[in-house]
């Protein structure tokens, strides 16, 4: 991809971003509903579900992604949570299927995300078209990363304006989907969720690092 094209895209991205820079801690991006996103089918699990069953995406309600959308989501999973020295990528943990499950939810809470994600996937292919490629997955890795980086900056400037809002929710879902798997938890350094005979408090090296006395 030429430098010229990148500058052009950045200018274009600027036009559609709002100047407002705000960064509240909580809350999800709000997008105007998109006509392209047909309401999902299926029913919820009801107020008294089987808590012990292990559920897979698609078990409770039909999924949405086409083959092409799913392929794009796999690429996005690995841009947002790539393999590194200590842990695997999001797609290897099936996070793309979680995103599909999420946007296919029959509950009202996921409707905004559904609209944003589906509209965002279209936008990525359109952006690839502007760069002379058929679709997002056909771009080389550097170009894909550059688009993500630019979107991440837009997302920080204005959490509500598309397409930054799309990227924010995409990142939230992929990173959150990743850290809620056993592999993701391990990478984060979570060492709990195991039964132990005694809870002895933080080990001595933790107290030493904090400069605190051992507990009585």
């Amino acid at each position: 991809m030429s430098e010229m094209k990148r500058i052009d895209r950045r200018v274009a991205l600027k036009w559609i971003s709002s100047a407002a820079a705000s960064m509240p801690l909580i809350g999800s991006g709000q997008d105007a509903s998109s006509d392209s996103a047909k309401a999902p089918g299926g029913k919820g699990y009801g107020p008294d579900p089987d808590l012990q069953r292990v559920y897979q995406p698609g078990d409770l309600w039909p999924l949405t992604f086409s083959d092409a959308q799913r392929a794009t989501m796999i690429v996005l999973c690995d841009l947002i949570m790539p393999t590194d020295d200590t842990s695997p990528s999001a797609s290897s943990l099936g996070v793309h299927d979680f995103v599909d499950e999420w946007i296919s939810s029959p509950y009202p809470g996921q409707k905004t995300d559904r609209n944003a994600i589906l509209k965002g996937l279209d936008w990525l292919d359109e952006e690839a078209g502007r760069q002379g490629e058929k679709d997002f997955v056909s771009l080389d890795g550097n170009a894909q990363f550059a688009i993500c980086r630019d979107l991440s900056i837009l997302a920080k400037k204005d959490r509500k304006a598309f397409p930054g809002s799309f990227f924010r929710r995409l990142r939230d879902l992929i990173a959150g989907g990743y850290y809620t798997t056993p592999e993701g938890m391990k990478d984060l350094g979570y060492r709990g969720n195991v039964a132990v005979a005694e809870w002895t408090g933080p080990p001595p090296e933790v107290l030493a690092k904090l400069g605190l006395e051992p507990q009585a």
């Binding site: 919820g44 808590l51 559920y55 499950e101 809470g109 959150g176 989907g177 809620t180 056993p182």
Partner: peptide
């Protein structure tokens, strides 16, 4: 159970 074993990563829903 870890959240990946639940629907919607065990997030809250109206149910």
């Amino acid at each position: 159970h870890t959240p990946n074993m639940a629907p919607l990563r065990a997030e809250s829903t109206p149910d």
